[in-house]
Nucleic acid binder design. Sequence first.
DNA 1: TACCCTACCAAGCAATTGCTTGGTTGGCTG
DNA 2: CAGCCAACCAAGCAATTGCTTGGTAGGGTA
Lengths: 206, 206
Amino acid sequence: MSAQKSAQKTPESEAPHTRRAELLQIAAGLFAEKGFKNTTVRDIADAAGILSGSLYHHFDSKESMVDEILRTFQEELFGQYDDILGGDLDPRAKLEQAVLVSFEAIDKHRDEVAIFQNEAAYLLTFDRFAYLADRNRQSQEVWLTLLRTGVDAGVLRDDLDLELTYRFIRDTVWVAVSWYRPGGRRTHTEIARQYLSILLEGIAHA
Amino acid sequence: MSAQKSAQKTPESEAPHTRRAELLQIAAGLFAEKGFKNTTVRDIADAAGILSGSLYHHFDSKESMVDEILRTFQEELFGQYDDILGGDLDPRAKLEQAVLVSFEAIDKHRDEVAIFQNEAAYLLTFDRFAYLADRNRQSQEVWLTLLRTGVDAGVLRDDLDLELTYRFIRDTVWVAVSWYRPGGRRTHTEIARQYLSILLEGIAHA
DNA sequence: TACCCTACCAAGCAATTGCTTGGTTGGCTG
DNA sequence: CAGCCAACCAAGCAATTGCTTGGTAGGGTA
């Protein structure tokens, strides 16, 4: 109760490696693996070695757990995109950098990316998660800006439907989270470079 | 009971446009929209205008509904892939044809594709759906064969990791189901052609 | 008329769900 | 030593879930 309130007070600040953060990690893993609704509070508690009721000492609902997980992750990711857009790389390098940063996110924040990918549609049915739609719009803006800049600079084809191309890139990048496993045969950077090679040059023989 | 049995006897044969087929359509729509587990038998019954218990006159479980939906769809799809592989088109045309057929499936069987895409992982946790893993393997074989044939014939780049390329294609094609809506601005054929253009030639300016 | 069969209803049961409540424990602090 | 507080337990409640049971309406058939 009073404990609840004081714990609630540090939702994101300088991540104190507390039990709270630990529980969020565990929950994220389960949400990513089985889906938000398919994960019960008892699943989370079991994985943490406590009883389900004890979770409510740290969080006030299952929803607020995903909420915190997604907010934290997105702040970091979109911060990186903004840095790229505001940076002084040339258009092609900016696009490459955005792809690289995305694959890095898949590597470093697997669970969070998976949750955003798989559960956003469902979560959007709650008012509380309306901000996810904003993030989607923001994502589209980021990539369209990158693409337009590239076309204007003459480094990208000018005969493509940019909105379609945006979806193509977004999809190919993020679905990788469904099969990529850190520590596998290829590093995320290698994968990103191959993806970029296909995306930019195509798979047809020159 | 006895009615049950006789209804169960025509699970796939020459689709008689019965109430049964109608209910499967309704269920497929809901499974695709909200997910299998997130769809309750009461949801399905409501959408059909009957009571939930009445569904069990037609089917013996919620699972057997998805089962039938997926089996029927996959038989058709993989039949088409086999026709392409066994056909006499040149390597590049075969690859293009496979992509076109896939987008056609997205157009004609939205729900089924979405279910296979989103629920396969979950369904695979049941023995009953082990065949979905076989279908995944089969899909990989189909695309890898197409790619290898293309490389050998010299129409595709030979410096790419084929397994990675396979995933790239599979992902880009199937995720489209998450945003494509029939009757939209572009036909599925137009979208397929643009995708092929990007995939084969890349987005960089020549 | 007697029968059957398809398609449904009405009611409810057992299991699972998210969450609540009141209490206990053990370490830290004044 | 007294008090506090984060972290947890034990028990349970109301709602929702998949599915069962016994029955009925109505059209076709013999």
